[in-house]
């Protein structure tokens, strides 16, 4: 049992990091970022390049993928989303753009890094073993803690920095924020960059454990969508809760339902739909946020 909880917490910390980025972009721009999973995969590949190809330290790899992804996110917002949002009649049109970007990133990843599964050498050797009740490799613990630290840093940043306050204001009410003198364009771009950065950092963390491959983008996006549906779209605490809940469900499901074959996700999906029938806005979302 302890083992299941430990696994769930480890998964949850990573998932929360992914969901945070997605929910941030959604709350600021009202854009459902289909390309989030691809951004995550791209982050993984950048870390792989820095660490395995160039032989630089792991933390630097994560830093580089975070920065590059942030730059890319800012560019995507400024040159793609902003003009389309301004000119389209129905704001759902951004979905087509987001899907196009997802395809584009898939193509770029395919051309730059190929189809192969890539991984980096273990960052820490050894296995933590508590009386055979919890067995967990040290590198997983380190990655889990790093993910938690990133989540904590993000929350503190959003709560106490001037930029964070501006973004929260933007998420609450775009027009009101604008009237109070918040530079809407600038902070939208900044928020998108931050969201993409979180995806990049999560991808960089992941590559040290399971490696990355091209096909992971789509499924990751779907998982991230589920997390923010559980917690409520556009709510930071909801994204974190959703991430941990999904991580825990996955961990429990894979252990308990192992005998019945690959039905864990089927059951998670089905229960999610039942849950949403009763609480459409998720755990912490505002109705029709």
């Amino acid at each position: 049992m302890e083992q299941i909880i430990a696994n769930g917490l480890y998964l949850g910390a990573q998932y929360a990091l992914i969901a945070l980025g997605l929910t941030l972009i959604f709350s600021l721009m009202n854009v459902l970022n289909f390309a989030h999973g691809q951004m995550y995969v791209l982050g993984g590949f950048i870390t792989y390049t820095v660490v395995a190809q160039l032989g630089l330290p792991f933390l630097l790899g994560i830093l580089v993928s975070g920065l590059l992804l942030a730059l890319m996110g800012a560019g995507v917002e400024k040159y793609l989303f902003r003009p389309v949002v301004a000119r389209s009649v129905r704001e759902e049109s951004t979905m087509l753009l987001a899907a196009g970007i997802a395809f584009f990133l898939d193509a770029v990843i395919l051309l730059l890094f190929g189809e192969k599964q890539r991984g980096i050498p273990k960052i820490v050797d050894g296995v933590f073993n508590w009386d055979f009740r919890i067995i967990m490799p040290y590198d997983r613990i380190v990655v889990g803690l790093l993910a938690l630290a990133a989540v904590a840093a993000f929350i503190l940043y959003m709560r106490y920095s001037r930029t964070g306050r501006a973004m929260r204001a933007l998420a609450q009410d775009r027009t009101a924020a604008q009237l109070m003198g918040v530079d809407v364009n600038r902070y939208s771009m900044f928020g998108f960059a931050l969201g993409a950065m979180l995806a990049g950092v999560a991808g960089g963390l992941l590559v040290s454990i399971t490696g990355v491959n091209l096909g992971m983008g789509g499924p990751t996006s779907i998982k991230a969508f589920m997390m923010i549906m559980i917690g409520g779209a556009g709510v930071i605490s909801g994204a974190i809760a959703g991430g941990f809940i999904l991580g825990m469900m996955e961990s429990v499901g894979l252990t308990v339902l192992a005998a019945y074959g690959d039905v864990t996700y089927l059951i998670i999906f089905a229960s999610l739909m039942v849950f949403l029938a009763f609480r459409p806005q998720g755990l912490m979302g505002k109705p029709w946020g």
């Binding site: 779907i222 589920m226 549906m229 690959d262 089927l266 999906f269 089905a270 739909m273 039942v274 029938a277």
Partner: peptide, 30 residues
């Protein structure tokens, strides 16, 4: 399926239907 999920709107409905595709695929597998 629509009775519960059509109460959802906007992005929520979009995401639930996306998940639905995956549910059906997994059901077909199982």
């Amino acid at each position: 399926i629509g009775l519960p999920i059509l109460r959802l709107r906007g992005v929520y409905f979009a995401m639930v239907t996306l998940v639905l595709t995956e549910v059906v695929r997994l059901t077909a597998l199982a």
